[in-house]
């Protein structure tokens, strides 16, 4: 991979050409906030929280660092009055959308947003439409049980026809990856509840703990070829 020379906050950095600025910053221990970025899934440019200023020659512009490729001579700034203003605005809007989210509230307060001036939504839950759950379900789990529906103010993440999905394996990866805790999942008496569906949990053959939905184990067995006997023992006892 060809290397390029750039600077972030005045620090000279060598990076792979085309690597996204956000990854370059984090590799070099320069903190940049973000909600929709995930190491395993890459960038999607949804949350707009990772904005930085990029100067090339005499021009400065605001870019989403998660989608801006590193190039020779780029001078990036991750902290400035302008950036702070944009991030504050983004967070205030997200907070207005998700007033119940503790994570958004925490982030907003830490960026100096004390209150929301806009009308608060009460029908969006904690979802910021970052797409992480959908991308996880599609490219990590491989079942695509989740998708968006509608557009504009009624756009939301859901299962097809808002009904319990037949392809969902109950793995809970969507709930795990969700940055705001919007997706509800709970295990009770050996049954997992998620997206309106109930999954019977498998009890570990050795310790008896209900550790994963039976349906998920069958799916793993089918796709990886691992035997059900092996999968029926929880990872701690294997």
């Amino acid at each position: 991979m060809p290397k390029v020379n750039l600077s972030v906050d005045g620090k000279k950095i060598q990076a792979d050409k085309g690597a996204f600025l956000l990854d370059v910053c984090r590799d070099n221990h320069i903190p940049v906030p973000s909600l929709c970025h995930n190491e395993a899934l890459g960038s999607d440019g949804r949350c707009r929280l990772c904005v930085v200023e990029v100067r090339r020659g005499n021009r400065t512009r605001m870019v989403t660092s998660c989608l801006f490729p590193a190039a020779e001579g780029v001078e990036a700034i991750t902290q400035s009055a302008n950036i702070a203003l944009v991030r504050k605005t983004v967070l205030e809007l997200l907070w207005a959308r998700c007033p119940e989210s503790d994570e958004i509230a925490r982030l907003a307060r830490s960026h100096g947003v004390s209150d929301v001036r806009y009308q608060k939504d009460n029908d969006k839950g904690k979802c910021i439409l970052c797409n992480l759950c959908i991308r996880t379900c599609e490219s990590v789990v491989g079942v695509s049980a989740l998708g968006l529906s509608g557009k504009g103010p009624v756009k939301k993440v859901t299962t097809p026809f808002d009904e319990p999905s037949e392809t969902c394996i109950g793995c809970g990866a969507c709930a795990f990856v969700c940055p705001t805790g919007h997706i509800q999942m709970w295990d009770k008496e050996g049954v997992r509840n998620i997206w309106g569906r109930k999954f019977e949990m498998a009890a570990c053959a050795k310790c008896g703990t209900h550790f994963a939905p039976l349906y998920q184990l069958e799916y793993i067995s089918k796709t990886s070829g691992a035997s059900m006997d092996r999968l029926r023992t929880c990872p701690d006892c294997r």
Partner: peptide, 25 residues
């Protein structure tokens, strides 16, 4: 009709969630 959407998705090998995205957009 829901069954038609499901049938199209099944035939094309498109996840139902993606077909539903198109149908609701």
């Amino acid at each position: 009709p829901k069954d038609a959407v499901a049938h199209v998705c099944r035939t094309l090998g498109v996840p139902l969630a993606k077909g539903y995205e198109v149908a609701t957009f």
